[in-house]
Write a protein that binds this DNA or RNA. Structure first.
Lengths: 339, 339
DNA sequence: TGACGAACTGAAAACGTTTACGACGACGCC
DNA sequence: GGCGTCGTCGTAAACGTTTTCAGTTCGTCA
């Protein structure tokens, strides 16, 4: 029996000494994995209380070889849509007794890799993440090689071996565009962030194109805006506000849509009279602007939740699954109602 | 020398065997804490490459007794202002080679405690957190008792023994209110969330009251709105839109300000002509609304950064510090310029 | 030449936990 | 009465790392 400095944290040994049993018995009493005499259990509980013992997860993890911690990687927490999916993951993880280790990539491939490397060194049980391009990602290839389970959020991969929880981006892009067409707009364009950094943008663009095709419209203009730069360059501005400007805009992100609305307002154009707008994501502030933002509302919180739960299943050995959740075209003042 | 399954992750032992040295040498070569022959270092590097070795943090942490991981607790990730401070913490942590474990309290005291308990069981090196009331918090009392270092964000405690990184909420509330008065408004009110859940709201309210007093105005109306409930009840609505309605509103949060603006708009009132509004936080979307939102802009990202850096110092033994960062009254269309 | 320090390396202990294995008593059954 | 079974518990090993301690081999200086 060892003595210990009062300042240091009590370990399972101290509890065992206090309760007059072995450390194995303490461990069993705490985890309930084996039969324990109820009297012994009481003594252990009392000792735990007396010492203020809190099991050290590090020891447990080292022994178990895994950590009941999920690594989460998002492009940025500044976008409310990602923050909300993290909140969903967080909630589900808490309920399951898991912890959440977080990292962000800032939309950069190198940081993506570094972050994953960092998370893996923690021996996380699995990962929930959003990457630039789910079908060709060196990061994901690496995870596959290592046999590390993961589930994608927002990404909608073609490959059936990559788990994901998302909405149908192509169909949603189509629906958004159909709504613009139903509102009588024929000169349409899509506004995206950095196209290369987002496979979802591409999928939404595909849906956009399909809706145009089925309506016999040919213009498939794409206007790229860039996530970070708060300034919009002259040519882009003219494209949006010049004489040949579109009368309907599908924006691949709500934040983008709000920026565009502000830009149009500065230029003296009215939404939706001069330009109708549909966004994508369904962030809460979209309801509060004037006019309010019509958008494709994703169930971000639920997506995070489902992603985590599916990750748990994958860790238990379940097959990969591509979970498609329902989305909704949320009406708003930026889009006149269809005829 | 042991053999191992090819599927399992390589350990430092495998590297040692591959390089033909001892595990101690591998450890030293990897951490650079002791002199190593350059030739030996090369062999180790080669073995690391060959095996794809990644040091297991769990083992390191167990041995070290601490974890180079910071626990972060925020009320909610849904509010962009908290998400941004987390991003700041995240950035600083990454640069320092630390990891971020995240939890949220949903503004509930019990969840606050549970979350802290959870983070502590990970043996985090310290905590960065935002609590309901920094001066009387059972959670913080517990941390003090355990000698666990922490730094508060957004909270601005009176007690000198509690570290924090924040702005001067009282002064900011005063400045916001002075701006409303300078704009010629005399019937003023403050709108807050759940007052009890936010010491900062109280501090801002105090600044509000001080500004009214110095201008010889007596009305110190407080309108409580509630964070979660999207609906505003009838009495509150009448207070905001009735005949005796205020002509200037100071909102303790930008999200609240945006909700109020939407509510006034529904009621047919014009901002800023009928009611001038100043918010608090400086969330980016505030620039994009029509009219744009005048607000007290907090350096949220920087606050998170500084909080983490100060936490590192505290862990090294530095004394507690209450860091006050500069804020800015950001002009916006919701507030007519002062005379 | 001998002593001494510097550079480098290895053996082994330690961090806190879980768990395989074995031991012990009590009990039921033939 | 012997034997297996069940419930309960303790001993000790193991997880992967860092670090102390103790060498060994050099070069250098008196």
């Amino acid at each position: 029996m060892r003595t210990r400095a009062a300042s240091s944290k009590p370990t399972i040994r101290d509890v065992a000494a206090e309760a007059g049993v072995s450390i194995a018995t303490v461990s069993r009493a705490l985890n309930g994995r084996a039969p324990i005499a109820s009297e012994t259990a009481k003594k252990v509980q009392a000792a735990v209380q007396a010492l203020g013992f809190r099991a050290n997860r590090t020891g447990r993890e080292l022994r178990a070889g895994t950590s009941r911690t999920v690594g989460v990687l998002v492009p940025s927490l500044a976008n409310p849509v990602f923050a909300e999916s993290v909140a969903g993951i967080q909630d589900a993880a808490r309920e399951a007794g898991w912890s959440v280790l977080i990292a962000s990539s800032a939309y950069e491939a190198e940081r993506e890799n570094q972050a994953i490397e960092h998370l893996l060194s923690h021996r996380v049980g699995g990962l929930v993440l959003t990457v630039a391009d789910a079908d060709r990602s060196a990061t994901l290839d690496g995870l596959d090689r290592e046999g590390m389970p993961y589930v994608l959020v927002y990404n909608q991969p073609d490959r059936a071996d990559r788990s994901s929880a998302t909405i149908d981006n192509i169909a949603a892009g189509r629906d958004a565009t159909r709504a613009l067409i139903a509102a009588g707009r024929t000169r349409l364009a899509m506004v995206a962030g950095r196209f290369a950094a987002s496979d979802r943008s591409k999928q939404r663009y595909r849906g956009f194109g399909e809706a145009l095709a089925e309506a016999g419209l040919s213009q498939v203009a794409l206007i790229e805006l860039g996530f970070d730069a708060p300034e919009v360059d002259g040519p882009t501005r003219r494209l949006l506000t010049g004489p040949d400007r579109p009368t309907g805009l599908f924006c691949s992100t709500d934040l983008l849509a709000l920026r565009v609305m502000a830009l149009l307002r500065e230029a003296g154009l009215r939404v939706p009279d001069d330009v109708a707008i549909v966004g994508f994501d369904g962030i809460p502030v979209g309801r509060l602007t004037a006019p309010s933002l019509a958008t494709i509302a994703q169930p971000s919180h639920e997506m995070g939740r489902r992603a985590f739960l599916h990750l748990l299943a994958r860790i238990e050995g379940a097959a990969p699954e591509r979970i498609l959740l329902p989305y909704e075209l949320r009406p708003g003042g930026s889009l006149p109602p269809g005829r």
